[in-house]
């Protein structure tokens, strides 16, 4: 089964990092990324830019706003897709992602969302 993981972070806090701090973070991330890839259960894993545009229905054409749908400090900064046998297996694999291991003070967190069963057919 497939599971989508959304990696959250606080863009403001991350923007405030000094260059050495940021590089130290990247080095740490690389090690976890390597672990994650080594599981062979990673289908896709990508980082995102912080820029957000949201479209909402509300007329003949969608209403376009800049900014995220949910008004929170944290934004989705990365997406990964995992192939796992069940939710606990997905948790096990996703636990290797940097957002689940480090960066607590940067608002990092990882949200796991099972694909709906229809998607599996």
């Amino acid at each position: 089964m497939k599971y989508l993981c959304l990696a959250y972070g606080d863009p403001k806090k991350m923007g405030a990092l000094t260059k050495p701090e940021f590089e130290a973070l990247v080095t740490q991330c690389k090690a976890f990324d390597a672990e994650l890839r080594a599981t062979g259960q990673l289908v896709e894993g990508k980082s995102l830019e912080w820029d957000v545009v949201t479209l909402r229905p509300g007329g003949p054409k969608p209403i376009v706003t800049d900014g995220p749908f949910a008004d929170t400090k944290e934004r989705v900064g990365g997406v990964i897709i995992i192939e796992a046998r069940d939710l606990n297996d997905a948790i096990r694999v996703a636990s290797l992602h940097p957002a689940a291991r480090i960066g607590a003070d940067l608002g990092w967190a990882l949200e796991i969302r099972p694909y709906s069963p229809e998607c599996h057919q």
Binding site: L87, N88, I91, P114
Partner: peptide, 22 residues
């Protein structure tokens, strides 16, 4: 059995069972 199967059998949500197992 998978987390989701156990959750179905006991009529609870998969995240509840997953957390219990973790």
């Amino acid at each position: 059995l998978g987390t989701e199967e156990i959750a179905r059998a006991f009529l609870t949500s998969a995240p509840t069972i997953a957390q219990r197992i973790v």
